[in-house]
Computed example of a mutant assay.
Amino acid sequence: MTSAPARPFALVTGASSGMGAAFARALAARGYDLCLTARRLDRLERLAEDLAAAHGIEAFAVAADLGAFEAEGPILAAIAARGRRVDLLVNNAGFSIPQSFAATPWLRQRDFLMTLVVAPCALAHAVIPGMVERGHGRIINVASLAGFAPGAAGHSLYPGAKSLMIKFSQALDAEYRAKGLSVTAVCPGFTRTEFAQANATQHLMDEAPRLFWQSAETVVETALRANDLGRVVVIPGWHNRLAAALLQHLPQGLVAAAVRRGSAKYHLGD
């Protein structure tokens, strides 16, 4: 008598709320076992329990601050201790800093880079060899429409970090597609999550026209479908695709001026 094949296994970062929690719910519905990681262990454990009960999958939580040095180590150790290997990695954890660059303590800026750049690259570096060995694997990097935009006052490192995630995804696709990996950068615009609450810009975001907002669930489904199809860069929503096209193809001086005017209200100054 042979045992049933193991369910696929996914690691989702920033899974305690917003898009990360939406990824966890969507993947559980697809039959994935899950490792959920973020800083808020209580939220993670409740979500893991709910998903296990609703979908008959295994889900467990690992509290981690991805801004810490080598934060990926305990996460990967917890997965290995359960005898699992990552089939799908969702690099979702992130935040932004609306204040001016030098007005923000360097440790906070460093935590930003560790969370949005170093940790995603470290996790991908750790799981890719096993994916290549098995001949299949998936990586979804949550980038942003901001990755196509020039820098502006406030959120100083955010466009650069998200642009790196786009280029990183393209590079991984070029290196590993033939070895069975599907890599996607999803680039959402305004999305209904707790993101703006965390950086104290919710009152400003609330002024944006409702037409331009999408739900986290819509963004997640778009990302998963794109990854299924092997699409490397996906921009959810026609309005965001139009904005990305304008950002890339209009004269850059005009784009920079427009972005500076439009983003000024989201800059909380010094």
Rank of each mutant, 00 (worst) to 15 (best):
F69L: 15
A216S: 10
D206G: 11
E221R: 08
D228C: 14
A78N: 13
G262S: 10
R82P: 02
D228K: 12
D33K: 08
P129C: 08
E58H: 12
S3D: 08
T104G: 01
G31M: 09
H125P: 07
V255W: 00
P98I: 01
H125S: 12
P98S: 05
T2S: 15
V259P: 05
E70I: 08
D173V: 05
A28I: 06
G135W: 13
L181D: 00
A64Y: 00
G262T: 12
L51A: 09
R108Y: 15
A256Y: 04
G180K: 02
R138V: 11
T184L: 05
Q197V: 08
A71P: 11
L246G: 06
P209E: 10
N240G: 04
R260C: 13
G67S: 05
V90N: 02
L242D: 14
E207Y: 14
A26V: 08
L34M: 15
A243R: 02
A119P: 00
Y32M: 09
W238V: 15
A223T: 07
L51E: 05
A143W: 02
R82G: 03
R85K: 11
G83V: 10
P5T: 08
P98N: 05
R43L: 12
H267S: 13
L211N: 12
V12F: 01
W238L: 10
F69Y: 07
A63C: 12
A26K: 10
A208R: 03
A38S: 15
R40K: 15
S17C: 14
G262N: 15
M165D: 01
A196C: 07
V117N: 04
T222Y: 09
A21V: 01
A28S: 14
L157W: 03
G20T: 03
A22D: 00
H203K: 08
I235L: 06
A257V: 11
I97P: 00
L164N: 09
V255A: 01
L51N: 06
N240F: 01
V186T: 02
G18T: 03
I235S: 00
R177E: 07
L107R: 12
T222K: 15
R30L: 05
G18C: 04
A256F: 03
L229M: 11
R30V: 02
G253A: 09
A152C: 13
A171L: 13
R231G: 10
P236V: 03
A21H: 00
Y266L: 12
F69G: 04
R30N: 05
P74F: 06
C187S: 11
